[in-house]
Design a binder for these strands. Structure first.
Lengths: 220, 220
DNA sequence: ATTTCCAGAGAACAGTTGTTAACTGCATGG
DNA sequence: CCATGCAGTTAACAACTGTTCTCTGGAAAT
């Protein structure tokens, strides 16, 4: 691992990264299923056949892009979840964190939003897998919160998924607001905060009303 | 309107509908931005040039598909919102309604989910416009509910959008569950119900805690 | 009955696509 | 130092794309 990889491998990874970058840029104006192999190689300035040295197909490249866009986000989320503070503070912090991420990696966010239900099955599944991992991490963090006392594992996961979906929708909102001026971004932020607030209120009062759900079926 | 349109116009509309249907079917395996004009006409069994008699471009056809998929949904939603009953009953009713719609028009739902953040700008905007209309209708219905006493117009719209987004995500869940067996559909339904329940709890306790938000800025 | 109109057909255009094959040059391992 | 491996090139393939122009048959209007 610590061994500096040779000139050969280094150059290969460089072109591979160039392909990924070019693809991501081209994807700002279209979907993955319409992205052409030649289109990508042309943008990089490399022969079409060179593509096959790195990816089996465009779908394969798409999966790699998912890894790049979401894979590195796990530690960020973990640290964000472990920050202490007032409920309100944590909400604002989370929204700011999302806003920052969208501002720094807009193309990545757009790609994920676009391909989450996009036309390329393997990519869809890759994104779904990563989001499921996020949800589990959030659920884990929620479980350690004293507010979650008495919550079933199922309900915790439900709430975690709700938070993950909310995170994505907030990111999408910022993305749309980004090309509509800063005052729209501000509006998006305030909207996201209020949404999270409302979900938080629901969370704190979840066990107040009786939830005699006969279908939950998790007696353990 | 009541005038029976001539043989000429009738045949034209028939071809137009055939193009829409064929496109929708082809879109189950790809995104709109990769759908070819010739691909569609070939599926219908018509000359490629005939396409231009009905649509200026594929994007134009996409917008027409949005109209078809979402336009007819407004009355459904309005009636669904005006049904009376217990909070829990209404939630279950709503989820059942979504499940039924997905089962009846899976291709339409898939299309909307896929193109909401898809690669074709006019289609994205058409979907966004329709969803905004939905949100306004929901907000209107919420305003008449006694639970909404004391709510600001802004907060009502926030909640309405949350419900609309929830509707779409529930529909997407059913779509994914559809190709995974009935027990997965059941699971999706129960998950959606609990989500709506939690949001409902948050709604009922929204005004309990003080929300001295200095940034809302809607004094009028 | 005759003219007008127009949905759709047909052919052709220049470009594009993914994929195969055989190649070249250079970093690498023995 | 020399042989091997392999990233990237070149050329060619059949198939496909959107768009234009010209044409035709039959419904509609006069």
């Amino acid at each position: 691992m610590s061994h500096t990889l040779g000139i050969r491998q280094a150059q290969k990874q460089k072109t591979r990264q160039a392909l990924l970058d070019a693809a991501l840029e081209l994807l700002e104006g279209q979907s993955l299923s319409s992205l052409g192999l030649r289109e990508v190689t042309r943008a990089v300035g490399v022969a079409p056949t060179a593509f096959y040295r790195h990816f089996r197909s465009i779908a394969d490249l798409g999966v790699a892009l998912v890894e790049e866009a979401l894979g590195s986000l796990h530690p960020t989320i973990r640290t964000a979840l472990s920050t202490t503070g007032d409920t309100e503070e944590r909400i604002v912090r989370a929204v700011e964190l999302i806003a920052g991420h969208v501002e720094r990696h807009p193309a990545h966010v757009r790609f994920i939003a676009r391909e989450r239900y996009g036309g390329v099955r393997p990519v869809r599944e890759a994104i779904g897998g990563q989001l499921a991992r996020f949800a589990e991490e959030v659920a884990e963090a929620l479980a350690e919160d004293p507010v979650s006392e008495g919550w079933s594992r199922d309900d915790l996961l439900m709430l975690a998924q709700l938070y993950v979906d909310q995170m994505i929708m907030t990111a999408c909102g910022f993305l749309e607001a980004q090309e509509a001026g800063p005052e729209e971004q501000e509006r998006s932020a305030r909207l996201a905060i209020r949404r999270l607030r409302l979900i938080g209120v629901g969370r704190r009062h979840w066990l107040d009303d009786g939830h005699d759900d006969a279908g939950s079926g998790t007696p353990g």
